[in-house]
Amino acid sequence: MSHPAVTIRGLHKSFGAVEVLRGIDLDIPRAQVTCLIGPSGSGKSTLLRCMAFLEETSSGSILIDDAPLGFRTHADGSRTRLPAADIRTARRKIGMVFQQFNLWPHMTALGNVSEALKTVQKLGRREAEDRAMVQLKKVGLAERADHFPSQLSGGQQQRVAIARALALEPEIMLFDEPTSSLDPELTGEVLNVMRALADDGMTMVVVSHEIGFSASVGQKIAFLDQGQLLLTGTPTEVFGKPRHPRLDQFLETYLDRGAAMLL
């Protein structure tokens, strides 16, 4: 298989005295869905945020398509921070979807999706909005283009947020607990959009509590516990029996999120 979309080596991250990630080595395969699962506080969200450079890593390296993200690592192991413009370039390949949607409340759905096309890619208004509409159609919200975030349901807001990330044609999509702040009956519409994206061959990294989704859509599962990667592999390898006792214990608490089918 071609080399990984993201290569993570020896990644450490501390918040003050608390070490959240303790030496992570992980490859994110191209055109596949990688699911990061684990108990809260295991560091899975932090790991994802490091991949978007929303958190600065303490040591180790992240390569996006072989290009270093944020820091250049020298032969002796020391690191220099890359200039802000380089960081923006590396980030261009990445689309991020947040738990809290983080739509800008003063812009319509169309405004949210077309904003970066206008200000970053310097497209004309007409072209930016045409391209934004294509993405809104893709997530099934073309008819809500003129609505402000406050006029949309949580599920619709999250779909707009996905369209906003897709508009920049990223190579890798990161999802940070995309359904965790949604009512249960709204998670389906978001998961369906994500499924369609996976079917299109998008490289995706998903932090999720939806164990059922991870097991059925995920092609690679990474189980984190206390800042370390405890298990990685295909769903069959990770969820198959005999199962790691720590994972078993974790799944027990997620019966309502589709974990029951695995037990």
Binding site: A52, R91, M96, N102, T119, V120, A161, L168
Partner: peptide, 15 residues
């Protein structure tokens, strides 16, 4: 909210 700023950083807006 910090997240609104982070979302902007992620789509490439400069400071």
């Amino acid at each position: 909210p910090v997240g609104h700023i982070e979302a902007a950083e992620c789509v490439g807006l400069n400071r």
